[in-house]
Simulated scan of single mutants.
Amino acid sequence: MKQLRVLLVDDNPEDIFLAREVFQEHEAQVDLVTCQSAPDALDYLRRHAEVAYLPDVVLLDINMPGMSGFELLRALKDDRSLSHIPVVMLTTSGHPKDVQEAYTLHASSYLMKSENFQAFMEQIDAFVTYWQRNRLRHWPQR
């Protein structure tokens, strides 16, 4: 099976480090790229706008300085060459307004980051399994 290409966008270096640790358990199945800001992620996606280089799914934090995750999500969904990429919000916020805003802006899913490392590992395991089974099966070959 081909690798699942994931773009993680999070401004917190500790959260990125933790996510890299967890995704390393899936290194044979997942190609993880990280960006520490929404503008960097948007630039990365626009530079790699050919389908062969785009991620299969974006994991996106909400609360980031400058450009929020919601603003990036809006920009992605407004860009015809990027709007098809599924975006999963990965955040510590469980506020109902944040959940509603994410789905209003067409996020594919909303995950609350677990503060427990073992539970976070289980979340990522489930994320990888889901997206491998449901995204890659019908995605064009690279």
Rank of each mutant, 00 (worst) to 15 (best):
V6N: 09
L7H: 01
L8N: 09
L8A: 14
D10N: 09
D10P: 12
N12K: 09
E14Q: 06
E14L: 13
D15C: 10
I16P: 02
I16S: 09
F17H: 04
R20M: 08
R20V: 06
V22K: 07
Q24S: 15
Q24I: 00
E25L: 14
E25T: 05
E27T: 07
E27D: 13
A28G: 10
V30L: 07
D31I: 07
D31W: 03
V33T: 12
Q36T: 14
Q36N: 15
A38Y: 03
A38W: 01
A38I: 07
D40Q: 15
D40I: 05
L42H: 01
L42A: 05
D43T: 15
D43Y: 05
Y44H: 10
R46D: 01
R47S: 04
A49M: 03
E50K: 11
E50I: 13
A52L: 06
A52C: 07
A52I: 11
A52N: 07
L54R: 01
P55K: 03
P55H: 05
D56Q: 08
V57K: 11
V57N: 12
V57W: 05
L59N: 12
L60G: 12
I62G: 03
I62H: 03
N63I: 15
N63K: 12
P65R: 08
G66C: 06
G69E: 08
F70M: 07
E71Y: 07
E71D: 09
L72M: 04
R74S: 13
R74W: 05
A75W: 03
K77P: 04
R80K: 12
R80D: 15
R80H: 09
S81A: 14
S81K: 03
S83K: 14
P86C: 11
P86H: 04
V87C: 14
V88M: 15
L90C: 10
S93N: 00
G94E: 04
G94S: 11
G94P: 02
H95Q: 12
K97I: 11
K97V: 13
D98G: 13
D98Y: 03
Q100V: 14
A102F: 00
A102S: 15
L105V: 02
L105M: 10
L105G: 02
S108C: 07
